[in-house]
């Protein structure tokens, strides 16, 4: 069941985005955060939302925003793409010519101007999504099906007629 987060959890989520990625509070205005299992979802907070959350058995509510990894948060690529303009800290710009290697899952050696942990990865000036910066280097955390579509040249599975 998707449950709206408490006020303190809401604050914790906003603080995470500000402290880790420099996302100002205003960029998160208008979203309700709901939680199910280890995933926090962001959904537009509109009148009548509670009625839907309570009245229906829900598979997904808005956009997956954060996932709990042990005691840490991991941002989703969908969230980083949503907040792209607002993300100002712990951003790694892929060096020219390294995109393919990153997409293939190779560990890219640095140096990178970011703290260790989950980072926002940009390529060609635009947001790409989530990466993990560790001692060995930078590794993709992008959703596998999306990457397979991109490098496999087959589109993202089924489309509408």
């Amino acid at each position: 069941m998707h449950v709206s987060v408490s006020a303190s959890q809401h604050r914790e989520i906003c603080e995470y985005w500000y402290e880790r990625f420099g996302v100002p509070l205003e960029a998160l205005h208008g979203y309700r955060f709901v939680i199910r299992g280890k995933t926090v979802w962001a959904i537009t907070d509109l009148p009548g939302l509670d009625e839907l959350l309570v009245g229906l058995k829900i598979e997904a509510a808005g956009l997956p925003f954060l996932r709990r990894r042990g005691h840490a948060w991991k941002p989703t690529t969908a969230a980083l793409l949503l907040l792209h303009d607002a993300v100002a800290a712990n951003v790694v710009d892929l060096p020219a010519g390294r995109l393919d290697a990153f997409l293939r899952g190779e560990v890219l050696s640095g140096p990178f101007a970011a703290e260790r942990g989950y980072v926002a990865v940009r390529s060609d000036g635009g947001m790409l999504g989530c990466g993990l910066l560790g001692l060995a280097g930078l590794k993709s955390q992008l959703p596998r099906p999306w990457v397979e579509a991109l490098i496999g040249g087959r589109g993202d599975r089924q489309e509408d007629p």
Binding site: Y31, A61, G62, L63, L81, R157
Partner: peptide, 13 residues
């Protein structure tokens, strides 16, 4: 997958 990629925040599935 489409909704996440497109940045849709107003859909309940």
């Amino acid at each position: 997958s489409h909704a996440d990629r497109l940045g849709i925040t107003s859909i309940v599935v």
